[in-house]
Structures are given as structure tokens and as C-alpha cells.
Design a protein around this nucleic acid. Structure first.
Lengths: 350, 350
DNA sequence: GTGAAAGCGCTAACAA
DNA sequence: TTGTTAGCGCTTTCAC
């Protein structure tokens, strides 16, 4: 079933059918109505692949994400899909599970389908994997990678604002020994966040103890493991910031397992503000990365890049802000059950 | 850049290039190598839209889900994508947010892209929405809708086995007053599950109190609200089964808010076995719907239906089983602080 | 207002 | 073993 079939039935040419479908005003209303009626009756849907072929652009944007299991990504996806559908674009999704081979596979899938651009929310990017995109002039927009170039834009996350709010907040609660659980040490997003942490600590004149800086994997299990390392220290932080909420939630579980209370014994602050943070107990104090705005920015970046494929890449920025819930609270002196060198020892019964 | 460009450079015809790309053995190895080399150098990727156009099938399956925010679906998606990629198929995903207009929109997206089949995991299906698929002979596979027909298959969930295990387990723990929080009352999946619950209750000779049967919305908030209704009853159940894990997690939160302990005061059993169930406290006793097998079954159903579009639809079945964690425990007589008619009143200090 | 026809990139039947 | 060519369904220019 194609436009010619419709045309034959109505007694017009396929060109007229095409015009009707595309809302051209060059068709006599009666003709248009007859065409529409037959289309309706036969439940005809035009084949967009033909259009894609003709114009070389598919009306599809690719979305590559590392881990669909982390609620941040479904929440992003939901917003992104909504924006695309509103703009008559299609979405081609791929996940990488943090594997670079999977990333390359995903890029290939995007390339053979001739997507009009790719939003890459994976952090572990080797240049090799994305070369093919750049080479084929497919606009690429990355997440907080902070490198731009021809056909390569970036949505930079301004961690600084949120991180400063978080540190200031913790300081106001009496915390001075503040730790950080990052993503993998190799990854740029993780580095940017860790650096923002270090800068904020400096700004508020707090000493950084590198023993308090640990590495997770952006997942629950990584946060749990890193928190256990921190618990085992003799000198421990009283507050911990994390690279994302799943890491924070893992840390919370480690603390629960070891019999510590939050925020009584330790304060935990996450990053992302996934919905789950509101549902767990204690609810998660976190740095919010506004999801809709984030998705919107990616879309805008893709559109901009698509308009002129020779334009240089651009840098876009979204901010972060502190959302106060119940996983951070005032420091409690009795937290330090064991201390190094006998300093800071607290009375047992107080 | 197309096959002719490659062909020109190598000094062969585009047919030869096509043969090399598709692994035909009718090409002299040296020729093939030269072709491959140029493809590599130029980072050429063939345009699958042309192939799609030529063959009328796109190598793409559609996946329609109601709510990407419910972790069950990302977990399914992950498995499904993996299977598709392994089989050189593409995935076109759409979410409906439980709106029938969004469903119709999604179906349209599938139709214009000429997908080879659609896996529909949405429960709120009006026949109108899917008519276009059936009419256009696009194989459709639904989730536990239990209707089949030409071009319409179903992956039925055998709730019975799991439900019976759950009731038997609760009975062995001393529970006799067992409640159920379903999805929407209008939806078939919800009905199938509720019916399985009723049948299991009967099988184990437990009386059903219809006051204990409530309706949620498959989401956290629905479970929370329904649980609050149950808490407010003067005669209350001691154990509650739910239509899915998110509902159960909402119920857990309601209980925590009202100061009840789980499983001390109430036992809760979920359905799905999402990863989150292991992470929360108390960890969730639930009925497992094996995700990989489920995704695999959908894929098989789509493949089967695609082989012969005139074949009648088939029914596929996946089972469920009880996963025991910590949200269900023995009945505690003192739970019943207030009772109706003075029956079952418990001593205060016991 | 409407129609005829070319061409998007690929593949397979057929020819050589 | 390789090349030629028609055609998948659509849009759009040009002709009428």
C-alpha cells in the first residue's frame, strides 16, 4: 500500500496525495477531502523511510546512555522523548553498560540509520569511538565533557554553584571533615565534580583529607563499597558528598548495615535529584540537576548544530542547586567513637 | 557518500561494494580487500534506509511502555535491547504515560517507520488504538492481555503459581487476614492478578474480606494512598499483596509514616522483583517476573509472528515465583490494637 | 490545480 | 567474478 494506491482509488496522481498529506494548499478542497477519506478508510500511513532516503536526513536523534538502570537516565529519557515527539522527531536509543565496545556498536547503529545528531550521555568516551560521527558530520552533543570542536558541542554542568551551596550548608551544620565519593577516577564528569568539590572546600576554608576521597562507579554497589572503606578508617569524615544519587543511596545502605544512623552519625549528600531520593528513608539531601532543562538543552544543542553542520561546536551550561531533605544534619560530637592519636576523644556516656 | 563513491574509488561497481558489505563470497578476495580498505579509510556506513525501502521491512521492532519511571521497564528494556542488538534488529521505543492519546501517537510512530512488529507493554489498551497495527498487518504482542487473534499474540503471565506460593507462605506465617492492592480496576493485567489472588485465597481456604481489596495505580503514590486507606480501617489485614513492586514500596512508606514496623506489624509482598526491592529497607519479599526470560519471550513472539503474517496469534506464558526477603514475617497478635465488635481483643501488656 | 517523472541509496536478477 | 539496471515510496520541479 502506497500513495499510488491511494491515488488510483481517488482517481488522482500520487503527487496530489503527497500534497494532501503534507498539507499543501495547492489542492482543491474537495479533492483533498476525498483523498483524506480514502487514507482514513484504508488506514494508510506514509513510509517515512522513503522521505529519509530522499532527503538524507531521518528526523531522528540518537540518544546514547550508559546505564538505563540508573533512574536518572529514564527520567532524562522521558523528558527528551517528550520534546522530540513535540518536534516531530524520532529517537533512537542505545545503552552501553559502560563498555566501549557497546559504545562503538551504538555509534554504528546511529550512523547506519543516518540520525541527524547524537546526544551522548555516556561518560567513558574514547575519541576513537566518536571519530566516525565527527567524520561523517553527524552533530554530537556530550554531557559535561567540556571539549568542543567542529560538530562537537557540550552541555556543561555547572557543579560549582551546587557544590558551594552543599559545602556551605554542611559547614553551617558544624561539619569540617567532609569526604567525597566520586565516579571512576578516569572519567571526566567525575573529575569535574571532584574538582568542584575541592574548590568549594578551599573557598570555605576547610581542609581536604585525601583519605576521605574515594571512588565508586556511579552505581549503588560502588557507593556502598566506598562508604564501607570510609567507615573502616579510624579518623572518619562526618559528612560525605557523592558523584550521584545512586552512589549516595549505596552509601546509606552501608551505613545502615553497620548500624549507623543518618543524619545522626553521618551526613550524606547526593547528586542528580532522582525521584527515588524522595522515597527512601531518610530522604536524600542532594544537588539537583534539573532534568527537563537538561533535556531541553540537549535538544537545543542538537538543533543548533544541525542547522549548520559547519558551525563550530558550542558550550551550553546548566546549573545545579541544593535540595535539602533529611540525609544531612548537624554534626554530633559523639560520632567519633574511635579517633587517631587520642585527639578529639569523647566521653562515653555523653 | 554512497556505495557508488566507494565503487568509483576502488574501480569497481556499486554491486561489488554491496556484495562485499553483505559478505557475499562471489567477490575475489583481493577485490574485497581493496573495497574494505576504502570503506575503512572513508569511514563509510551504508544507509539502511535504502534497504528498508527496498524490502519493506525495517529490521526494527517497536517497544511501547507506559512508564519508563517504573524500574521494571528500564530493566526489561535493557534485556530487550540486548536481544535485539544480538539479532541485528533495531528498537524504536515509545512511552505513553498511561494516556491513550500518547498510545495512539506511539502506534503512528511505529507505523510510519514500518516496524516489523510491536511489543506493547502498556496495559490500558483500547482496541481503537491498536486497530491500525492489526489492519496494516504489523504483528503485535501484548503483555498479559490474554486476547489473541490474527496478528495479535500475547505473553501471558502465570500469576497463579507465584500467588499460591505467596498465600501459602503467608498462611504458614500465621496470616489469615490478607489484603490486596491492585492496579487500576479497569485494567486487564490488574484483573488477572486480582483474580489469581482470589483463587489462591480460596485454594488455601482463607476468607476474602473485600474491604481489604484496594486499588492503586502501579505507582508509588497509588500504593501509599491505598495503604493509608487500609491503615484507617478498624479491622485491618495483617498482610498485603500488591500488583507491583512500586505499589509495595509506596505501601512501605505509608507504614513507616504511620509508625508501623514491617514485617513486625504488617507483612508486604510485591510483584515484579525490581532491583530496588533488594536495596530498600526492609528488603522486599516479592513475586519474581523473570526479566530476561520475559524479554526473550517477547522477542520470540515477534519473530514467530513475523515469519508468517497470516499465522494466527499465539499465547506464550512466563511463570512467577516467590522471592523471600524481609518484608514479610510471622503474624504478631498484638498488631490488632483496635478491633471491631470486641472480637480478637488482645491483652495490652502482652 | 494537477500530473509526469527523476532521483534519493541499496540490492538482486540478469547479463556478460 | 563483476557490471548493468530496475525499482522500493516519496517529493518536487516543471509542464500543462
Amino acid at each position: 500500500m502506497d500513495m499510488r494506491d491511494i491515488a488510483k482509488i481517488v482517481g488522482v496522481s500520487s503527487a496530489t496525495v503527497s500534497r494532501v498529506i503534507n498539507g499543501s494548499n495547492l489542492v482543491r478542497p474537495e479533492t483533498a477531502n476525498r483523498v483524506r477519506q480514502v487514507i482514513e478508510e484504508l488506514k494508510f500511513f506514509p513510509n517515512t523511510n522513503a522521505t529519509t532516503l530522499k532527503y538524507g536526513k531521518s528526523g531522528t536523534y540518537g540518544l546514547i546512555i550508559p546505564d538505563i538502570t540508573n533512574p536518572f537516565f529514564p527520567e532524562f529519557l522521558k523528558q527528551f522523548e517528550k520534546i522530540l515527539v513535540k518536534n516531530n522527531q524520532e529517537m533512537l536509543m542505545a545503552t552501553t553498560d559502560f563498555h566501549s565496545t557497546r559504545l562503538q556498536q551504538s555509534v554504528r547503529r546511529m550512523l547506519v540509520r543516518k540520525v541527524d545528531g547524537v546526544a551522548l550521555l555516556a561518560s567513558e568516551i574514547e575519541t576513537e569511538s566518536i571519530e566516525a560521527l565527527i567524520h561523517n558530520r553527524v552533530p554530537l552533543v556530550t554531557m559535561d565533557r567540556r571539549k568542543i570542536g567542529p560538530g562537537l558541542s557540550d552541555v556543561t554542568i555547572n557543579n560549582t554553584s551546587g557544590m558551594e551551596q552543599a559545602i556551605e550548608y554542611l559547614k553551617s551544620l558544624g561539619h569540617t571533615k567532609i569526604g567525597y565519593i566520586g565516579g571512576s577516577s578516569q572519567r571526566t564528569i567525575s573529575d569535574h565534580r571532584a574538582n568542584a568539590f575541592l574548590r568549594a572546600m578551599k573557598k570555605f576554608e576547610l581542609a581536604v583529607n585525601h583519605d576521605f576521597m574515594r571512588v565508586g562507579d556511579y552505581r549503588f554497589t560502588g557507593g556502598e563499597a566506598a562508604m564501607i572503606e570510609l567507615i573502616r578508617l579510624t579518623d572518619r569524615p562526618t559528612a560525605i558528598l557523592t558523584a550521584n544519587d545512586m552512589t549516595a543511596i549505596g552509601a546509606l545502605r552501608a551505613l545502615r548495615e553497620y548500624g549507623y544512623s543518618v543524619p545522626g552519625d553521618f551526613s550524606i549528600i547526593g547528586f542528580d535529584d532522582i525521584e527515588l531520593g524522595e522515597l527512601i528513608y531518610p530522604s536524600l539531601t542532594t544537588l539537583r540537576l534539573p532534568r527537563h532543562q537538561f533535556a531541553e538543552t540537549f535538544f537545543r544543542a542538537l538543533e543548533d548544530a544541525g542547522k549548520d553542520r559547519n558551525a563550530p561546536g558550542k558550550k551550553y551550561t546548566v546549573g545545579t542547586s541544593l535540595v535539602i531533605r533529611n540525609s544531612a544534619g548537624p554534626v554530633r560530637p559523639t560520632t567519633h567513637r574511635r579517633t587517631k592519636n587520642g585527639r578529639q576523644r569523647q566521653p562515653q556516656g555523653a
